[in-house]
């Protein structure tokens, strides 16, 4: 495929915007045209957070679009919220973990402004058991990644979105893991400096997510 239209959606606080922005920045660094646009306003604050990214070798048209080539849903609620963007040629990545991501009420004003995953205990409290894999007949391919479970088991709950980003890279192919790592290092420079382990953790999560789609890759992280 020569260009990608991507929708990423999740709960406010799951890092949706940072993820989408890093993807676009990596594509820009790779020499492509890239456009990232957040759905801001009320939605950014506590509701479903949604971002659109386009990557293309040519000039990009409208910032928004009706149908995506790739839809990524990080929470149960965002699976239904992104239905409108999924068509016959859409690839769908979703988090199939047993832990439900926190849903934050629009009314909880005090919790609106952060852009990291909600505290683990909060997620635990709202845990639920999913009824089974998401079935959609219309779309091209559905990729279930138990990202939150993997993150909790193997790394740290906070980096579940990096596992998803790794999977996106494996599907999109126009950007490399290295470019994404550079983009993350640029975006999170201060936090990485303050906590070098965080850098390591994020990069390992990326690799893990990538391998979920592309198979094991032997590279030094």
């Amino acid at each position: 495929m020569h260009s990608w239209k991507v929708v990423v959606a999740g709960e406010g606080g799951q890092g949706v915007q940072a993820l989408a922005e890093s993807l676009a920045l990596a594509a820009f660094r790779g020499g492509f045209e890239a456009l990232y646009i957040p759905n801001f306003g009320i939605e950014q604050r506590g509701g479903v957070s949604l971002a659109m990214v386009q990557i293309s070798p040519k000039a990009i048209g409208a910032p928004k679009f009706l149908l995506a080539d790739l839809v990524v849903a990080l929470s149960a609620r965002s699976i239904s919220r992104t239905r409108q963007y999924r068509g016959a040629n859409t690839i769908f990545i979703y988090d199939s973990s047993l832990v439900k991501a926190p849903e934050i009420s629009d009314e909880v004003v005090g919790l609106q402004a952060y852009d990291t995953i909600a505290p683990e205990a909060f997620a635990e409290r709202t845990a639920y058991h999913e009824e089974g894999p998401v079935k959609e007949l219309r779309i091209a391919r559905s990729i279930a990644i138990p990202a939150a479970d993997m993150a909790r088991r193997e790394l740290h709950p906070r980096v579940f979105n990096m596992i998803i980003l790794g999977a996106i890279v494996a599907v999109v192919k126009m950007v490399t893991l290295e470019q994404v790592k550079e983009a993350l290092a640029e975006k999170l420079e201060r936090r990485f400096k303050a906590d070098p382990q965080l850098r390591e953790l994020n990069f390992r999560a990326l690799q893990l997510g990538y391998e979920q789609v592309a198979g094991p890759v032997h590279t030094a992280v």
């Binding site: 922005e21 957040p38 910032p63």
Partner: peptide, 8 residues
């Protein structure tokens, strides 16, 4: 849109 989007 122009205010908030990122592009090159």
């Amino acid at each position: 849109y122009q205010a908030k989007m990122r592009e090159a």
